[in-house]
Design a protein around this nucleic acid. Structure first.
Length: 181
DNA sequence: GCCACCGGTGGC
DNA sequence: GCCACCGGTGGC
């Protein structure tokens, strides 16, 4: 069996601080308590729309009558729209989103961290890693469970020289928020 | 023209 | 020396 790679990340930080999803009925935003729950909702958002009542699972009695959980005009936060239908990360793995500094050429990097702590930056690296470590495929992990699709900044000026993005129907009604820069 | 991929390197 | 972060570019 192939030796584990020596590239081990010591500190893995996700730059996402908050996960929110928009109610399909009242359009208010609800905080999602965990990344796992957020990924579960995101994977199925097209077939199963999110509503305020869904949030009662962790926020008893919440309804469309209640105020939105977040203020999208809060300029101390950087909001980004996520893509729908990104597969849930396999158990034991992590999908990491790193928001880049403002004014650069790209908004964010996606990478996965394997249970071995190996950091994988692309489908090519992932596919190779799965081939070199057959146990994951034996457990049922497949390449189709991964996506490197990054979120899109709400502020089109966040990234330098990026053409202004019109609101895209491909975006789902959920956002990331990172802390103040 | 876009973006997936990955090489280079500044800062630790 | 290492690696998180950023930019360049090949392939579409």
């Amino acid at each position: 069996m192939a030796q584990e790679s020596s590239i081990i990340t010591k500190n893995v930080w996700d730059s996402v601080k908050l996960y929110t999803v928009q109610c399909a009925k009242c359009s208010k935003w609800r905080l999602i308590p965990t990344k796992d729950k957020y990924e579960e909702i995101r994977e199925r958002i097209v077939e199963q729309s999110f509503q305020c009542e869904t949030a009662r699972e962790w926020q008893p009695n919440v309804s469309c009558e209640d105020e939105s959980d977040v203020d999208k005009h809060d300029n101390s936060l950087c909001w980004a729209m996520d893509r729908p239908s990104i597969p849930q990360t396999p158990r034991g793995w992590q999908r990491i989103i790193r928001i880049r500094a403002e004014g650069g050429t790209k908004f964010a990097d996606i990478y996965y961290v394997a249970p071995s702590n190996q950091r994988l930056r692309s489908m090519v690296e992932l596919d190779r890693y799965l081939s070199e470590h057959p146990k994951y495929r034996e457990e049922g992990v497949t390449i189709s469970q991964f996506s490197f699709q990054p979120p899109v900044p709400l502020d089109a000026n966040y990234v330098a020289k990026r053409r202004a993005l019109s609101a895209s129907s491909h975006n789902m009604n959920s956002t990331y928020s990172t802390g103040a820069s």
